[in-house]
Structures are given as C-alpha cells and as structure tokens.
Design a protein around this nucleic acid. Structure first.
Lengths: 236, 236
DNA sequence: CAGTGGTCTAGACCACTAT
DNA sequence: TAGTGGTCTAGACCACTGG
C-alpha cells in the first residue's frame, strides 16, 4: 500500500474511532508531516484523497476540518464497487435468476464495444438489503475479460471475484440514471405494483486500461433506494 | 487562474476542438511538460483534474487517453453549480413562485445549522429546460451569508449571483436522492399527474470555509430528468 | 528493455484567515 | 503579521505496459 493511501486510511480511522464531528479540526500540516515522517506533498495528497471522499475539507489559512454528512443508511453513488461498503451494518445478498453465456443485445454490444458474435456472461439477479428487495439487476460481462462466472460467485459479489479472483483492476464507470415506472415483471420481483416509481440506472464499468467489461441495467425499489453524493466544486 | 487549471482548460479545449474520441491518445507527459513549460507535477495535477472530471484516463506504462461517455443531454450530478454547464445548447429558465425573508423550517434550520429565529430567504421556483418543466425547487438561504436576493436574480441564476455578485466561494455539497410519487401540487406545477414518479433530492451547499448556506428540496419531472455520474475508483 | 505514468522528496514562494 | 494551506519546481526512483 502506498504511503499516501496508508496515511489517508489512518486519518480516516482516527476520525472514526474518535467520533470526530463536522467542523472538528485536525492537526496542521506540519504536525502531520512530523507525525507520519513524510514530505508535505505526501500529506497533501492524502488529504486530497480524503477531501474527494468527502471525509475532510481544507481551508487555506485556517486548517483541516472533518466533514460529516447528516444522514445514515444512504448508498453512495460514487463508490463504484457495488454498494457493499456504504452500508456497514447491512447485509447484502443476491438471488440469481439467470446466469448464462450468450450473445450480447444490441445495447450491450454497443456499451461494451463488442460485435454481435462475441460472447458475454448474462446475469440476472435480485439484490436484497437486510432481507428487503433492493433492486433487479441485469448484467452483461465481456467474456473475453471475465472468462468464467458461476452462481456461487454471483450470489456473493461478482466485483470482489473480478478484483481478487481474476486480479483485474477496476478503473472508472459511467452511470446513467432516470426515473420511470416499474414493469409488471419488475414489480413482481420486487414485491411492488406495476406503475410504481423506480429509479432506473444503466452503468458501464471499465478496467484501469479503459476497456469496458460490464454493462448493467438496474431497477431500484423506490422504497429502499436512498442515495447520496458528496460533491466538491474544484472542477466545476 | 492557476497554471494547472489553465493547462487543464487548454487540454480540454483541445480535445473538444479536435473532436477526439474515447481512447484517443494524448501526447506523453514529457511532451506536455515541454509544450507548457512546466514541471512534471504541474502537468500531473492538471491531468488529475481532468481525470476526476471524466475527461481523460491515464494508464501507467501506456499513455493518457480521452474518455468520452456515450450519451448526450444528461445532467451531471457532480457539477455542483446548478446544471447549466452540462447542457450546452439548452436554455435553462426559471419561474419564481415565491420569494421572501422568513424563519426556517425545522429541517432547514437543522441542515443550515441555524436557530429557529434566524432569518432565511425562501425561494420557490419552477425550472424549465428548453421550455419543458424540469423541476420544482424550494430553497432556503442563510440570510447572514446571502443578505439580499430578488426575483430578477432568482429568474436567472442564484448561484452565479452568489459567486460573482457576492464574491462567495462555493466549496462542497451533500446531495440526498430518492424516488417517490408526485404530490398534487407538484404534479400540477410540472404538468403531470399526481402519483406519477419523481426523483426527489435534498441538497446542502457549503462555502469553501465549510459554512452551509443553501438547503434545497427538488422534485424532478421524471420525463425530463436524465442524469449521469462518472466515477473513478481510486478511493473506493 | 525502452517507454510511460506514479510516488515521493525538500524546499521556495504564494494566498488566505484570524487576531 | 503570524499561522496555515496551496502551488510549483527539479529531480530521484518506482511500477506498469507492450513490443
């Protein structure tokens, strides 16, 4: 693990363990440099990471402060690795409805830069959070990148398998969101009524080298799906 | 303007002007250093900015590549400054339904760290995009920070006024999202039916010094509200 | 193994905040 | 005006990609 990641992790743990609140001040840069025995740039880089993560904010001439949002139980739309991490005390489970090797739909081929004859893994799941149906998800994985999948993996975490089992590195994702009404099938699977509202998302995940490997369509249960985003304005 | 921001802006413009596509390669770091006559760290910082913005991705050992998402007309949930910037060819207008100085509601006071007796500006608007009703927005501004507002400002852009008129610096925001059904009043204002789906968001905007100054509740027209998020996994 | 991006350092200087 | 974070440099060294 890199120094700046290590330091960021330790600072985050320190904030967590001491239950620091919004606006609480952290030690000044010089102190942190001395404490961790690294140069200023390294500390700066750690703090940038924490800033982007929404953990701290820095005020020039004043100090480094803890940032805390005020609500619990919301799923972060930025974490990019499924939503397991955000809901510490929540158990996420999955029921696999379908899993097969097939040819991509037109939209899947387009999103994954594939031809109509390339193979993909198609996975359809219901995902539960603390026993409540959270969403219905249909995923297409480029088989050239993800050569093997099974129900056991899909029941736990496909992304963990991709990272740890296959040793692939996930780089970035595009997520498209809109609101719509549940189809009959989705309503049935989620235990809701057709015509009820849903959050509908399509996402494309890429490896660090830019190759898209996963195209997914997700319909969220409107009663369970609460999201949050922490944004910074340094590039707006 | 800082060097690294300037360089980032120029690179982005270059990509735009030359209509570079997903995966197109940019000059290597050494070239960029020479071209802009700055040190490696400065170029690196520019590219980090563009990476977070979703404009490029960098692959160690390989190069710097253009990142392009595949859909147009989606509103970025990260831009943090209203949605004007994302929709280049779209005109955003507002109809002010109410604007007054008043006392905060309980939730507004909580979100803005105010007491029940502090003054806030309350603004209620319908926002249109190319003539279509996009959302109904209710905002509360801490009057101690935003001492003056009028209908003329609210019809154009409150955020532009806050930044340019008042010289305040917007730092970061928390955005909470869920899906729900339109109330009768909202449906009426948006030209939809009660019970139709809506994306419902609450946001809290902070200055760079951490003070919250705006708490807003927004109900989006489900037919018009299409969003996207570009995420990176360097902190997941 | 050559090419390319990433990390880290040490230090100069700048810009903002608070008193 | 002292304290604090931000920018920028020059350069050493590391880690990954791809022929």
């Amino acid at each position: 693990m890199l120094k700046y990641q290590q330091i960021a992790a330790e600072l985050e743990k320190y904030i967590e363990d001491n239950e620091l609140q919004q606006g609480d001040k952290l030690p000044v840069l010089e102190m942190l440099m001395a404490q961790f025995k690294v140069s200023k740039s390294t500390i700066t880089k750690s703090l940038e990471l924490l800033e982007r993560k929404g953990v701290v904010y820095q005020v020039r001439g004043s100090g480094i402060f803890v940032r805390r949002h005020k609500r619990k139980g919301y799923i972060s739309l930025l974490s990019n690795q499924g939503f397991k991490k955000d809901l510490e005390n929540a158990s996420v489970t999955s029921k696999v409805l379908d899993l097969k090797v097939t040819k991509p739909t037109e939209e899947a081929a387009y999103s994954l830069n594939l031809g109509a004859d390339d193979d993909v893994y198609y996975v359809k799941r219901i995902r539960y959070i603390n026993g409540h149906a959270l969403c219905v998800e249909e995923s297409y994985f480029n088989k050239a990148i993800v050569p093997y999948l099974n129900r056991e993996i899909a029941e736990v975490s496909i992304f963990t398998y991709i990272k740890e089992g296959l040793g692939l590195k996930i780089g970035f994702s595009d997520l498209y969101l809109k609101v719509d009404m549940l189809t009959e099938e989705e309503a049935d699977l989620l235990g809701l009524k057709p015509g009820d509202p849903k959050l509908y998302g399509e996402s494309i995940f890429h490896l660090t080298n830019g190759l898209p490997f996963d195209y997914s369509k997700i319909a969220y249960n409107f009663e369970e799906a609460h999201f949050f985003i922490q944004a910074n304005s340094d590039f707006s």
